[in-house]
Write a protein that binds this DNA or RNA. Structure first.
Lengths: 303, 303
DNA sequence: AAGGCTAATACTCAGCCATAGCATAACCCT
DNA sequence: AGGGTTATGCTATGGCTGAGTATTAGCCTT
């Protein structure tokens, strides 16, 4: 069969509290995603291995878990260059209701890592102030570079696609606009954009996770994994907005999820600061009724 | 870092000719997906490794390649049980324009492996004749089994979701309705459904690929990877239908792809058996204009 | 050469849904 | 009592979908 390599598991663990999407990181020399080995003797499946060491390291029991992508480029880990084995790692996305964690783990707003991804208060300043000019000089005069930049960053009349998180990060990496790009070349960083960097290729993994999650909420009811069993419609909306990075029209959102049969009222009310809101819960039956139940975002009519 | 395991690469190589979607298999004791090792010394990235040995083994140069999933359950390969190392394999989906292949490789209609997935001539016979009764006896009286069967096979009023190919195969595996399930338990198969089986977990990988591809054509213009540079609209429609496994309304399909800016006419005509058809080509600019250009399938309005 | 066959292309119409804005209800506070 | 805040209800509009009808342009058969 194949050749012997080192295989590891990475987890992007996401929670949303107070309208802030957060991810769990471990603080080493740099911010690091939780990482653990696959123990072939111990773990019958990859995701069981993941759950095992996440629980051991952070005390967090994972609920929803989904495989993201397998990263195996040479040079992911500088230890390889020094003669270590090839490091392949399988990255997972996990959704949890935020809880306290033990050890060196801590939660971080994931828009700290991707400031240009949060459009909830309108077009992020950093785009026109930093990203666009920096890209302009990367483009030089090359039309294929311009086209690519326009498409992934929605410049020059192209529209912004919230799911292209990874493409954006990879473009910035190629354009030497993130510290990781310089670090991987063994040089001092210059002209980097704002945004927290991470160890190894972990910010790339994080970008993969964000993009995937943004896509997924549209057609699978995964948001509910991040919410308590009962919630108000505004709470639900805020979580969706936090993930999608855009604001939604309240009345339409409400109609969409109710009319779509995604939730059902419990009859109970709760204080909110204004008129009391009804508490809702997820309707599992929707999985039977609709082929692709999701929350729906604007501009999603597909064409 | 992680522990030493064997890592391999699997390829689901898809082409569509004559309205038949085909995949490339290698004939060993059983039908097998093309498989090769990752050579850590040789291959800088996983997909380069894939391209290298696919070209070596079959003479086929791959164009579009996409990572599918990483399979790492214990017991995937019986060799493990005999003390071999844990076998993890990264599966890829590749789209090609069909060409002749060398070696022991050959093309097979992928609906031979999943007869219940082809709805182009209406609801497949095998569903009501074989699948439904067999599932009925698996269900026994368990309501959670009934719900799951209803959802994934669109029974009992639930609607059929073309993308749930993997869920369907996994259900059949659990219900001991495919030969692989018996083989993996070391027993003689009984009461299995029609449909060609494959070595190891390769039919599971194939199901993953089909489901993923069916999803992808809806929002990314990947179909064009399977078509010659110029094509008629009916050719395009036939390829989409072959993948999606359903028939589409011709006029609406035409309106969708033209009006959506996905293709542009070349001005040239070609003989077709009826009125000559115009040749079209893919419009790359659409990537700039629309966030999620895909061909669109019926019942896709999302809600 | 006429008529039939096939496939391509054009046009229409009803229904549904997404977007967006307006209006009202229920609770808090001062 | 009145203003602020949030929840919830309703409606107009435009666009797209799904389905059907009509017309055109070649080929083939008789």
């Amino acid at each position: 069969m194949g050749s012997r390599v080192d295989i590891g598991l990475n987890a992007v663990i996401v929670a949303v509290t107070e309208e802030v999407p957060r991810i769990l990181t471990v603080r080493r020399a740099e911010d690091t995603l939780p990482f653990g080995p696959l123990e072939p003797e111990l773990d019958r499946t990859l995701d069981r291995g993941l759950r095992r060491w996440v629980a051991e390291q952070t005390g967090l029991p994972l609920g929803y878990v989904e495989q993201l992508y397998t990263f195996g480029d040479r040079g992911r880990d500088p230890a390889e260059e020094r003669g270590g084995p090839r490091a392949v790692s399988v990255a997972y996305l996990a959704l949890v209701r935020e809880a306290s964690v033990k050890g060196e783990a801590s939660w971080h707003d994931w828009y700290e890592f991707f400031p240009w991804e949060d459009w909830r208060d309108g077009r992020p300043r950093v785009l026109d102030r930093d990203v666009a000019p920096a890209l302009e000089s990367w483009i030089g005069g090359a039309p294929e570079r311009r086209e690519r930049a326009d498409i992934v960053f929605g410049l020059g009349g192209a529209s912004w696609d919230g799911e292209r998180v990874l493409e954006r990060y990879e473009l910035l990496y190629e354009a030497l606009l993130v510290p990781e790009a310089w670090r991987d070349r063994g040089e001092q960083g210059e002209h980097c954009l704002p945004g927290r960097s991470m160890a190894l290729d972990h910010r790339r993994i994080l970008a993969t996770a964000l993009g995937r999650l943004r896509g997924k909420i549209k057609y699978r009811p995964v948001v509910f994994e991040l919410l308590p069993p009962t919630f108000t419609l505004l709470q639900l909306q805020r979580v969706v907005e936090a993930l999608a990075g855009v604001r939604l029209h309240k009345q339409n959102f409400r109609r969409l999820v109710e009319h779509g049969g995604l939730v059902e009222g419990t009859g109970q009310d709760v204080q909110t600061g204004g008129r009391p809101a009804e508490l809702f819960m997820f309707r599992r039956e929707v999985l039977r009724e609709r082929p692709a139940p999701g929350v729906g975002l604007p501009g999603m009519k597909r064409t």
